[in-house]
Design a protein around this nucleic acid. Structure first.
Length: 403
DNA sequence: TCTGGGGTCCTAGGACCC
DNA sequence: TCTGGGGTCCTAGGACCC
């Protein structure tokens, strides 16, 4: 406590797009845009990632894909290959973990490292940072930006400010002058709403906030305000936490066209429930709760959730509960834009409620146990022969109610 | 330019219990 | 016959992040 730490933030540059360019050398130097199908400007969805060549046209992540298509009609538009990115991500994290066990993933392409205890072995933070960048480039053919600082927040700011191919070290004692000129929107946890709130108070730069007392922001922003004052001064004692349990597992789908067709809606819920349940089983988790997300044609979002008596990892259970939750959505004849299903209140499956019940008779010989066996068999078949090798009859394209 | 999909954390209000 | 205060759990929504 109080000891001076050395924290690294490692962030892959334009990760999905860079992987695509590396895997398709003919795209090197071209604007590559990873995201939804642009469908000649009619597509729904947004840009997930784009190369720096694409950014020169004004394309950005989260931009609607149709707009990106108009800004950059000659761009290479590709659908995300999440499995591939996850694979490359594992390779990146393997490299990071050779320097320390204290690696906290922030996302698929970003991590904090606490290398305080690694310095005797590998050299100071800057040396480790340079070494990581070099290995990622040499072994994976990809570019990472790295920030080195005494805490998480400063290291993240440092890696961001150097992008692309960044390498920025924040010297102890220079934290506040490093942060002061930056706009408040760069503060971690300041989004559009908070920015507007701060702006109305006449605050523009991080330096403006650093000059306040914690109480000055507490009135308008509560605990969050106190936290922001600390960050703006470069103060952040949050530890790097390597282990963390997932809190929820979800799947959602935006329709190509808004719909009110009950059959389409039920099929979609079943498909989403199956995605969620498959992931639960894959991670040996059971859900103690289910949340349904409903977004209507006017983009109004409603959620309904339920707590379960027993945990489950079966699509049939998740689907049944999702259907019940759907009955509680006051949708008054509007069309649906998006449906989502999430499993919450997760706990480890070993000795999970359902399994335990099985041990004590009746319930064990009933449908849940058989369903569980079927689910596991399907998981194995898909692992061996691919996801499309086996499908529920209810999800076949030509399936009709009552047939 | 109509706004994805995967998450996390926080808050406020009500139910319920003592 | 109208009343306190503390604590916990649950739900719904919202802000934010990548």
């Amino acid at each position: 406590v109080g000891e001076l730490r050395t924290i690294l933030h490692v962030d892959m540059d334009a990760f999905y797009a860079s992987v695509e360019q590396r895997d398709h050398p003919e795209w090197t130097g071209s604007p590559v845009i990873v995201g939804a199908d642009p469908a000649h400007g009619q597509g729904r969805g947004v840009v997930a990632a784009c190369s720096y060549e694409a950014r020169a046209y004004g394309v950005r992540s989260a931009l609607p894909i149709g707009k990106a298509w108009r800004l950059c009609p000659k761009g290479v538009f590709v659908r995300p290959r999440m499995g591939r990115y996850a694979e490359v991500s594992r390779q990146v994290f393997d490299i990071l973990r050779t320097y320390t066990d204290e690696v906290e993933p922030l996302s698929i392409d970003e991590a904090f490292l606490d290398v305080t205890g690694s310095r005797l072995l590998f050299g100071d933070g800057a040396t480790i940072g340079r070494s990581i960048k070099a290995r990622i480039r040499r072994e994976l053919g990809l570019v990472a930006s790295v920030g080195v600082a005494p805490n998480k927040f400063l290291s993240k700011m440092a890696s961001e400010i150097g992008k692309p191919d960044g390498f920025v070290v924040v010297e102890c004692g220079r934290e506040r002058e490093f942060l002061a000129p930056m706009p408040i929107s760069r503060l971690w946890g300041v989004g559009p709403k908070t920015e507007e709130c701060l702006r109305r108070m006449g605050l523009r730069t991080i330096g403006d906030i650093a000059g306040l007392r914690a109480e000055d922001l507490e009135a308008s922003l509560g605990d969050h305000g106190r936290h922001l004052v600390r960050l703006s001064r470069g103060e952040d004692d949050r530890p790097v936490e390597a282990e963390s349990e997932a809190r929820s597992v979800g799947a959602e789908n935006t329709f190509d066209e808004d719909t009110a067709d009950p059959q389409v809606i039920r099929r979609t819920l079943l498909k989403l429930a199956e995605r969620v349940a498959t992931r639960l089983r894959g991670e040996s988790l059971v859900a103690g709760g289910v949340t349904l997300k409903f977004r209507d044609e006017h983009f109004r979002t409603v959620t309904r959730s339920a707590t379960l008596d027993e945990g489950t990892d079966l699509a049939e259970d998740v689907y049944r509960i999702a259907l019940r939750l759907l009955d509680r959505v006051p949708w008054g004849g509007r069309k649906v834009r998006l449906l989502g299903v999430a499993a919450t209140r997760l706990s480890p499956a070993a000795g999970g409620a359902r399994t335990q019940l099985d041990l004590f008779g009746q319930a064990g010989s009933g449908p849940p146990k058989r369903l569980r066996h079927v689910a596991r068999a399907v998981d194995e078949i898909r692992e061996q022969f691919g996801h499309a090798s086996i499908t529920r009859a209810a999800l076949l394209p030509e399936s009709k109610p009552g047939k």
